[in-house]
Design a protein around this nucleic acid. Structure first.
Lengths: 145, 145
DNA sequence: CTAGTATATTTGATATATCAAATATATTTA
DNA sequence: TAAATATATTTGATATATCAAATATACTAG
C-alpha cells in the first residue's frame, strides 16, 4: 500500500525517528525541569554559549523567524531569558540567559547529551557520517528545486 | 559550538532534511491544489486506498490521535472527505474520499511521487536501505527508553 | 447481567510551523 | 539627502503536535 517503495519509505523512517527522539527528549527533560520544552532547552543552550540574534538562532536550528519570536517570548515569560535592544543595531535583539536559566541549563545539558547518546547507541561513527551525508544530499536536492 | 560532535549533528541533519523536504512538497502541491496541506494530501491518498480508521491512519504516519481528529475535520470542511459511523463498531469512524477528493488526488499523486524522486536523486537503493536501517535503530533506541 | 477495563475519538490547553503582511531600523543608490 | 532596498523582528491567521481529561461504545471477568 503506502510504504511501497524505498524512496517513499525513507521519509516515514525519518519522521518516525525524529518523533521518537523528540518524545524521548521531552520525557527526560521533563524529569529535571517540568516547564521547558525540547526546543526551549536547546535554544537556552545556544544563547548561553553565544552572543547571537533571534534570526541567527532560527537559521542555526532551522526554525521560522515567527516561531523564534514566539518561543523566545515564552522563555522570557518563564524567566529563562532576558531580551534587550542592541544599541549598535536597534533592529536586533540581545538575548541573555538569566540566573534561573543558568541553573536550569546545568541540569539540562547532561540530559540533552545523554539523550543523543542513547538514541545513537550501537551506531558507529562511520554510519553516522554516512547518514549525515545522505541526509545532506536530500536537503540539497530539495533546496535546488 | 553546538554542532560539535557527530551524534549531535545527526539530529540537525535529520531536521534540516525533513524540513527541506516538507517545504519542497508544500510548494509543489500548492501549484496544483492550493488549499491542501502536505499531510492532508498524504492522508487523502491513504483513505482512498484503504478502508481505515483514524487511529490506524495516525499509527501509520506517526500522528497523534488528537491531531488526526483535527486534520480530518479540516478535510471534511473542505469537502475532500466524508465521515460516517461504523455500524459494526460505533466508536469507529468510516472515512470516504469525495468526488472532489478523487479529482484532486489524481493531480496530487504524481506530484507526491515526483517530490520523493527529486529529493532522493543521486542516492542509490543501497544507500537508502542503509539510511533506513540506521534510522530504525535510532527509533528503537528511543522507544526502549 | 454488571462493574471494570479497553478502544476510538474528541476537546481543551499550550507549543510550534508557516505564510503573508506589517514595523522598525539600517544601508544603499540615484 | 530622499527614496528605494535590505534586514531583524513582530503580528495575524491557520495548521499541526502533544498531553491530559472527557465521551462514547465495546468487551471481559465475575
Amino acid at each position: 500500500m503506502i510504504f511501497n517503495n524505498p524512496s517513499s519509505t525513507i521519509f516515514y523512517a525519518i519522521e518516525e525517528a525524529i518523533k521518537a527522539y523528540r518524545k524521548l527528549s521531552a520525557k527526560e527533560i521533563k524529569k529535571v525541569i517540568s516547564d521547558i520544552t525540547v526546543d526551549q532547552a536547546l535554544i537556552l543552550q545556544i544563547i548561553s554559549e553565544n552572543q547571537i540574534t533571534q534570526t541567527e538562532i532560527a537559521d542555526l536550528i532551522f526554525k521560522d523567524y515567527a516561531s523564534m519570536t514566539r518561543i523566545i517570548s515564552l522563555m522570557i515569560k518563564k524567566e529563562y531569558v532576558i531580551k534587550t535592544v542592541n544599541q549598535q543595531d536597534k533592529r536586533a535583539a540581545v538575548l541573555k540567559i538569566t540566573k534561573k536559566g543558568e541553573i536550569s541549563l546545568k541540569k539540562l545539558t547532561p540530559i540533552i547529551n545523554k539523550n543523543r547518546q542513547i538514541s545513537t547507541n550501537g551506531i558507529s561513527q562511520t554510519e553516522l557520517e554516512q547518514l549525515k551525508t545522505i541526509l545532506n544530499t536530500i536537503t540539497q536536492n530539495c533546496k535546488i528545486n
